[in-house]
Design a protein around this nucleic acid. Structure first.
Lengths: 154, 154
DNA sequence: TCACCTATGATATATTGTATCGCCGTTCCA
DNA sequence: TGGAACGGCGATACAATATATCATAGGTGA
């Protein structure tokens, strides 16, 4: 299984990596964006845009509308600071925004937790299968629904 | 690449294969279910529950509510008569309801068409990766967004 | 006949996602 | 220095997707 090393971030380190990445893309790191990123990173599970809007509303002490959050999440996904979990209509912070991967999410139907693994060989074969079917600009969505080890013990 | 032969159905053949499969599961093949299946199978692209509700409303000449369609679609997905395309919030009829596969959808961002390929070796490695991360009862969701050959020519 | 079960209808509501418009602050240039 | 241009965001409305709840209708078996 092909793997490679990552610079894994958390907390302040993740935040500054995100800021750096975004500004390198020519985008601004505004207060609102920082607040959305904080909220996203502080969730321990994939969070919906509305979850995030609520969280930011609390921390900011004012009403923040979902559409603003959507705008920022779209920006984040485009800049690789966040990922969308399609089968959960939710978002997670990307722990290593500086490197590109097709990532695989394992989502527990019981507790909602999502773990994220990379397997470049696997995603390469998916891209290859897509290419041989005439698909270009492939962006794989690879998610596995199931039961995580924790919940399985119950 | 591991493949195997399918009984591929279309039109009436598909419909009767679906009916047989469903009744074998101990479920009824009602008029409403037949109408939903027809509508689903007649779309050439993944269709949302609301699309299907509209189509059935037309063919039945009366208002059919979305919740009824959802119920039936859930039943169909559970019985392998239909698949849900997560990244499109939509459904497609399964062309070979009698055999189980983890299937891979290639969805064109331009025209909305979805093609469906099976690659048992590929899905086996995804299941394996999930299992080695402690996941049980894995149900892979493998979709690739991109541009299909047709749309690429433009 | 009556109790029960399944399928569906009717209705309401929750959740997720977009579109549009306007304001405000910054930049930058004539 | 005025002011056009632009980016970010708020406000609002709305569209699209999904679920919850209760009612009804029809069959089936005691």
């Amino acid at each position: 299984m092909a793997r490679h090393d990552h610079q894994l971030h958390e907390g302040e380190s993740l935040k500054s990596a995100a800021r750096e990445r975004l500004t390198q893309q020519g985008e601004q790191w505004t207060g609102m964006r920082a607040a959305v990123f904080d909220a996203l990173a502080n969730f321990e599970k994939p969070a919906s845009a509305y979850d995030i809007a609520e969280a930011v509303s609390r921390t900011e002490g004012r009403r923040v509308a979902a559409n603003s959050v959507y705008r920022i999440l779209d920006l984040f996904v485009g800049a690789n600071l966040a990922r969308r979990v399609e089968s959960a209509n939710a978002y997670v912070a990307n722990q290593h925004p500086e490197c590109l991967h097709d990532c695989i999410f394992l989502i527990c139907d019981s507790c909602g937790q999502a773990v994220h693994i990379d397997d470049d060989a696997l995603s390469a074969s998916i891209r290859k299968a897509a290419a041989s079917a005439g698909f270009s600009a492939p962006r794989p969505v690879i998610e596995v629904r199931g039961t995580c080890g924790e919940c399985d013990d119950d």
